[in-house]
Amino acid sequence: MTWAVFAQNIVNGISLGSLYALVAIGYTMVYGILRLINFAHSDVFMLGAYMLFYIDFMFRLPWWLTFVLAAVLTGVLGITIERVAYRPLRQAPRISSLISAIGISFFIQNLGLVVFGGRPKPFPVPQFFSQSYMVGSVYMANISWVVPVFSGLLMLGLTMLVYRTKVGLAMRAISHDMDTSSLMSVNVDGIIAITFGVGSALAAAGGIMWALKYPQINPLMGTVPGIKAFIAAVLGGIGSIPGAMIGGMLLGMLEIMLVALMPTLSGFRDAFAYLVLIVILLARPTGLLGREFREKV
């Protein structure tokens, strides 16, 4: 492999990894607080892309405004899902909310198939993103650096939110102990709603950037990146935000490198993610940065 190709792969790996990371954060935040694998997250990811598609189609606003609107609306949608499908089950056995999440996921996918249609739609990509040029001997489209830079900014913002604000403090408190937090007059319902809102908005951003990279959208487009992002979250130690970021980057990079270094194995690319996951879990049963739990006997 030449240096140029190698650099190209590094760029691709970072780009893919940062998208995984962005979506993984949504899984990990919800898991950290509710101990719930939010299987509907990958469908929220898909809805983000459709949201932008339809807003753009109907209003023809400036692109950045369309983007913000789509992310905000998807965030609101995430809050609604939590209110309708998860909050009533908070005291129920944990498996009930998981089934509810699967039910919501089925519902969104099927509704998507009915409303949006099963046929892929071409995603509107502003010219800026697809413009490309050579840097040295590496071929770069603007999208290749926009995705990691913008994801990085979003993650930075999220880190500030979680570790530097009162809302973030409340989130961390709830993820430690929900009951005690509510006794300490933390507004648990409100904070959980914010968590879902923020996580869903990030998923929307991820979905939109995914669609910018692969400009065909369909109602099932969330499944594969969604499950990969989830793997990334588990890899990093589910419940840990830095873990989700590291897991996402690691997974993206490894996937790209597998295909680059061993092209004959590219058919196994999707299996590879799981293999990495299983190997890491066997070495560290709670992921890279997961809180190790020692049961008190």
Binding site: Y31, D270, A271, Y274, L275, I278
Partner: peptide, 18 residues
């Protein structure tokens, strides 16, 4: 718990990809 769930899901998907 959930770690077992995701690892077994992983095995099933690996079988499918294989």
């Amino acid at each position: 718990g959930d770690y077992l769930g995701i690892a077994t899901l992983g095995f099933a998907e690996i079988i499918r990809v294989v």
